[in-house]
Design a protein around this nucleic acid. Structure first.
Lengths: 206, 206, 206, 206
DNA sequence: AATGAATGAGTCTTCATTCAT
DNA sequence: CATGAATGAAGACTCATTCAT
């Protein structure tokens, strides 16, 4: 019986199995045989749905990326045009969403980062994401900071977020999400405080 | 007798070739055949000197790690017991030393980070390094900050450094070392300023 | 669905090819590439069905062993509880069955004997077989001989059988099965005659 | 200082190391690197003295063979023209001499038997030895047995000796030399008794 | 005489992909 | 839609041999 609409189901199954396999074995040892076994399907099906292993990996990365985008977007749409600090916190929170801080996803991210250096399609995905984070941050900081300061604040915060993530992925004890978020909040506050002082002082001279 | 003392020469040669191969092809495609060809030697020699590919990779990571350690140490020994800010800047400078910011080394780092998640020996090396950076930073902050604040400042700065590095490795335009250092310096200054205010205010109340 | 139930067919094919390869080239030169070529399949299939070369060799030895067991058993089940001499002759005949005296099988045996000294799994198989022959013989001799004599007769006959086999394998002219069997029969007769004399004499004294 | 007459010393050293290596690792894993290390010399020296590994193995087999020949000959020259039984026992004793029943030598024998099937030079050595044993036995039996009986007795005894040896090499508990010799003696006695009966009966009819 | 560095052919194994069913 | 048998290229590793010193 040719079940209808199997495609999305199978795709989700296989992407999930891929994440698990990368978590458990690492990207290098996540062979399609093992992924297929974990998903409870045959190896042939992977080529059928993803046109090869690369397609599956790309789809998996796209999936994780999309989760990240959603996690951020959800928080921000709720805010309307709240002050910059709220939006910046929402972006931070999105980046430290539970969907992004599970060990399996963090490992996958790290693996993708490394292989994106030599894989055009992955590289494109990763760069789009990088720029999105940067421009989101930059845009918010710009509401209260001069252009150059806004950019630097965005660069610093983006680096801080990624760095906290990275060290969390590598550390024995894992990522302490609460603490990471707090450190990022602090960074935001400091940058915004600087803005306030500048403005105040500017007013003094007026 | 055959040429004596070839071992250190060959080892250096092969480690260099490994770095280049990882830079150009990525860790996954850095086969011993390609590494050997690049070094201008036969494949057999790798097993002879490193007891297999894993040994070569471990030695390569150790080499990069040792360069990093040296880069930091050199700057700090010149300082004696200068104030914390000087030491913190020296640590930052060491981490952004030219030996650590070449594209080839940054790619190698990223590759090692990813594979260290599933490779005990690499994991050990990486963790030792991680902890060294943290404890160095923590130690300096502790000279002027209460314990908890010092720790958080160290965590933040370590993450910022790694994050700047990471984003530099991934970015199309590469790492802007000058700007990265400046952002890290700013972070240090902010943390130390906080300390000064606290102390000043404490004095006010006295 | 792909061809079903290929496994037993392929396994038999590959075991047969292994026997031929060992016969022609010796165990040391029976590479899986050559075995696969002889079987008309690719090398990969060997790992697929036997999980590596060792698995194939073990399966091959097991196959030869099983043939030997069958050759002996067939002859003995036909005998019911015939006198010991008949059973002993059946065991001898089984050991010199055509399935065991082809040059290819004899060479394989010799090769396995040699490598069983340093290969646990093969050693186990070989020892089970050795003990089976000894205990079968011992058991039959015991029906007419005192314990100690029965054991020695069994040891002698087992050695004679293996020795005839061995020398047949090594000799230029090959194994003369008829003559070998006759020599073994003679050995049996002599041992049993000794038993009869003893008993007769015992009766004389009665 | 070019030491004089190193050749025989080195050769003996290397042959001894070869025997030990085969004992410990098996022929397949007795690489020249391991043999050389065991002998405390460099690998190059093996080619120098034996023109390659095959030469070393051949020399090793020749050495063992020569020990066997000596063990038999020594015992027989002491006998002069004693009766056949004494000579046959001497041959048996020589074959079970301590130089031939150490585990290391027995393993080596087995390995050589197996590889002699596909190595002309080893095969030649082995066949010369086989025939020597057979003709020695045959010659002694011939002194008291008709031609055909003598040949069969020789074939049987040769097989028995080799079989006892073989099973001793393979058995967990090793070779029980005393028991093996006794079983071979028994075989001789039986054959010679048969001769005596025949002759006696022949006389009766006279 | 002796070394051991270096080679590179040869081995086993793994794995993404294909395809007949 | 789905299977899994089969392929064969590519990988890491081993090892006998060579040769400059």
């Amino acid at each position: 019986m040719p079940k209808l609409g199997m495609q999305p189901i199978r795709r989700r199954q296989l992407i999930q199995a891929t994440l698990e396999a990368i978590d458990e074995l690492g990207l290098a040892d996540a062979t399609i045989a093992r992924i297929a076994k974990r998903a409870g399907v045959s190896t042939g099906i992977i080529s059928h749905y993803f046109a090869g292993k690369d397609g599956l990996l790309e789809a998996t990365m796209r999936h994780v990326l999309s989760d990240l985008g959603t996690a951020v977007l959800e928080r921000r749409t709720a805010l309307g045009n709240a002050p910059p600090e709220a939006h910046l916190r929402a972006i931070i929170d999105g980046n430290f969403d539970r969907s992004q801080t599970s060990r399996s996803v963090m490992k996958t991210w790290l693996a993708f980062w490394a292989s994106s250096m030599h894989h055009r399609p992955l590289q494109r995905l990763q760069r789009v994401n990088d720029r999105r984070l940067y421009s989101n941050l930059s845009c918010q900081f710009r509401r209260v900071l001069p252009k150059q300061e806004a950019r630097d604040a965005a660069r610093g915060l983006a680096a801080l977020i990624d760095g906290l993530w990275l060290r969390g992925a590598l550390a024995q004890e894992g990522l302490n999400v609460e603490r990471a978020r707090q450190l990022a909040y602090d960074y935001v506050r400091v940058q915004l405080d600087a803005a306030r002082h500048t403005r105040t002082r500017a007013n003094d001279y007026a």
